[in-house]
Each structure stands twice: as structure tokens, then as C-alpha cells.
Amino acid sequence: MKIAAFLPKLGDKLHKTAYEAITAAHQVQALIGGDVVGLAIDVDQQQLERTAHYGLTRLIVAEHPLLANTYSPSAFAKVLHQLASSQGIDILILPNITYGKELGPRVAVTFEAGYIADVIGIESQNGELIFRKPVYAGKAIIAAQLKTAKKVFTIRPNIFTAKAAETAASLNIETFTPELSEADFREKRLSITRSTGKLDVAEADIVVSGGRGLKAPENFKLIEELAEVLGAAVGASRAVVDAGWRPHSEQVGQTGKTISPNLYIAVGISGAVQHLAGMSSSKVIVAINKDKDAPIFQVADYGIVGDALDVLPRLTAKLKEVLHKS
């Protein structure tokens, strides 16, 4: 069995989910045996070497002048297909981030592989892989098989996490030159803007979200202050996004972002099913709400029943003390 992990790059760095794809590939290897290889497109050597701390021993990187510092779904799908074919890959794993979500299905088609998205668990039965995937916004989970010989799947971020090991594996990096022309870049990227200084809810380990219980847009300052102390991203309920208090990029939920941070703090959010759909797979959930019967408390590990405007400044001050002491 040849198992490949696609290692996406965002900005000039490997995205953190690249390491998670390696972890998932090792899980597959432990279940059904085989070799694991990393596949990357236009990533520099120094970045690639970090994967050795996640146990990767072999990596192929596609390099071509046309690929430098750009992204185009059509061209990248073509390169990834060539990379995977050159290695005779049977199983290809991509992170379920924007690039993975659009490259995975395309490569599955050209590769004549079955495809399943957003996997949160992998098992095996009689040598066949069984995938666990949330459906209906996480209200149910299916166990499913792909009936094809070759398989492509994406993994939900922040599930297949692993710590970097002190010692690096001995990693062999090879270069691959894809066949590529200007015409393959059917979608031309004009620009990429990284939101500077602001953590993205989909990226952060800790998210502090505010809802209508904050009463007014200016009170989100209290959310931002708490987020800053924790190194967290700011999220929001749809109610406050629709009211224009916060941008849509911060919306958590069924029609916003689906996230699984290590810690999710919901402040002045009632816990509507559509909101829960986006955050119920968070590892630890804290709710702050003045209504002790608010549904959000039913999914919370820890709750504070109180007025957010009164609780937040005190909580932030205390956290500052504690976290800065240690």
C-alpha cells in the first residue's frame, strides 16, 4: 500500500494541517501497512525539513518556475495528480481546508479514486479502511467505506494532531518536475491577502465568541481583550454578524465556519442548533450567559451564569494575573 499525505502551504509556510495529514497517514499505515510519503508543491527546503519531526522519512516536492508563489486549482490538481501517479499512490490524504477541499475531489476524478471528505476517525476491518465522518452539521456521524481500489480523503483540521518529536527522523527529500504550461493555470490568482495580526477562527487553538448578549457592537472590546490575553481568535454568532456588528469571516456555525479548537468560549450566545453545528466538536467548551437555562450550557464543560459585561472585565484581569505570573 502506498500512502501519501499532501502538505499544503499557506503564505510561505506549511500549513499546520500538513503535519496532521502526516499523522493520519501514519494511522492508516498502522492499520493496513504500507509506505508513507509526503507530497508538496513549491515549498522550501527548510519548511519541508520540519516534517522529519513528525516522523516523515520520504517526501517529494514538485518544483517548476510557473508554480512559484501562486495557486491555481486546475494547475495544482494537475501537478498533484502527476505527483501521486509518479509514486503509484493508492491512498491520498489531504487536509479539509480550502485547498484540500477543492483539490481532493479533482484528483479523485483523474485518479479514478473514491473520495470522502472531512474524516474524523479511521479504522479498519478485514484490511478495508472505515472512515468516520460527521454529517448534518455534526448532528450525526457515519461510518463508511470507499468501494474503489484507490482512495482519496480529507481530514478535519485539529483532529489528527501530534506533537513534534525532539529527534528528527532521517528524511529523504526528492524533487519532481511536473509537466506544466501557462495554459494549465485556468484560474489565475491575482492576489492573496493574509489577515495580519488577526487570528482566524478556523485556525486558532482558542476561540472566544460573542453573541447578542453583548448588547452593543462596542462591547466586543471586552471579547477582544479576553481573546488577547488567551492568544485566541474572536468569533461571533450569526445574530451579531447579521446585525453588522462583526464581519462574516468571524461567524461560527452552520452557515459560518465549522471549527474544533481546544477551547471555545461562548459569551452571550444562546446555543441555537445552527451555532452548535459549528463548534460542538470543540475539545473544551465554556459558556458565559446570564440565563441559566440557555441551551449553550447543555454542551458546556464549564459555565458561568452571569452578566457578560460584568464578568468579562474581571475574568480578563484575573487571567492576566495568572498567565503572566507563570
Binding site: 472505515i130 454529517v135 450525526a140 456521524i141 461510518a143 441559566k292 454542551v299 464543560d301 452571569g306
Partner: peptide, 26 residues
Amino acid sequence: QLEILSMEIPQTERRHVILGDSDEDL
């Protein structure tokens, strides 16, 4: 391509420790 073997409703165990808003609780 996909064969669904089973479907279940996830049961996440939550701790459900609900506190008040005093300084001690925070």
C-alpha cells in the same frame, strides 16, 4: 463510491460544571 455502514448520534461527554459569577467562581 461510498457505502454507508452505519450512522450514529454523537455522544460527547461534557463535564457540565456550572458556576456563578463571584470572584471565587471566576
